[in-house]
């Protein structure tokens, strides 16, 4: 038996919106400690990892670890049938080939349920090393979304360079070029808007804007985002979800520029 109750459908809706355009099918690994997901896009350029800790749920029970193979587009269609403030219970009996979605309104006067067929997904799990990053930047997620979207008007890839002057995002295209520079915030009157830059070593890498735009669909999940860069290593873009877990993306760099 597996059972997990989300206090609000909205969280699960936001998570799906953040993942479903990158990955079609994924295994939700459900263990005693929580739910995890790791999946690459078809081109193996980006990877998404999700952690939802068991203690972040209203109710969480896993008798035996379960791997739920789910088509995210189908799950997203089902989740659209839930009101944002409905509770969502996912459950699966041992040996069953479906997972049940139970939606309950806050005053318990409406209940609906959907059963989704599970799939056998043969996915490869990658070992992600705990790297020491050359630079780490924390900023409002809306700011990152704006930069990525603004620069996409001029080209396909962005060069991110971290130096003593701050972090610079540069785009070059057929029509011209553009750049945005962010500097370490001084003063602490609005901590939620602050930009924090930790540079262990200057670093410069190029990344496809198409993927960064998809990652920024997770902005509604978290007011703040961390981006971590190392020379010749994938970029890490991390959205923390307060007490429940995180949604992280890794993006392989463009090389030979």
């Amino acid at each position: 038996m597996f059972e997990a109750r989300f206090p609000e459908a909205l969280l699960l809706k936001k998570i799906l919106e953040s993942v479903k355009d990158l990955v079609q099918d994924a295994n939700f690994e459900c263990t005693e400690s929580g739910i995890t997901l790791q999946a690459m896009d078809n081109a193996h350029v980006s990877l998404v990892t999700l952690l939802l800790r068991g203690e972040g749920f209203d109710l969480y029970r896993v008798d035996k670890p379960e791997s739920l193979g789910i088509n995210l587009n189908s799950m997203s269609k089902i989740m659209r049938c839930a009101a944002n403030n409905d509770t969502v219970t996912l459950d699966k009996l041992e040996g069953a080939d479906t997972v049940r979605f139970l939606f309950e309104s806050p005053n318990a006067d409406r209940m609906s349920e959907f059963h989704l067929k599970l799939m056998d997904i043969d996915s490869e799990t990658l070992e992600i090393p705990e790297s020491m990053y050359h630079a780490e930047i924390e900023l409002p997620s809306a700011e990152l979304r704006r930069i990525v979207s603004d620069l996409s008007t001029m080209g396909d890839s962005v060069r991110i360079s971290v130096s003593k002057e701050g972090v610079r995002f540069t785009v070059r295209g057929d029509e011209g070029s553009g750049s945005v520079i962010l500097r370490q915030s001084t003063g602490v009157d609005k901590p939620e808007e602050a930009i924090h830059i930790v540079m262990n070593e200057p670093v410069e890498q190029s990344f496809a804007l198409k993927y960064l735009n998809l990652f920024c669909k997770a902005a509604p999940l978290s007011a703040r985002v961390q981006i971590k860069l190392s020379k010749d290593a994938p970029l890490l873009v991390n959205f923390s979800m307060n007490n429940i877990g995180y949604l992280s993306y890794y993006l392989a760099p463009k090389i030979g520029d």
Partner: peptide, 14 residues
Amino acid sequence: VANQSRLDTFFKAK
């Protein structure tokens, strides 16, 4: 011209 690398180059399969 920059080429897109793949994640498999950096992370190994478990």
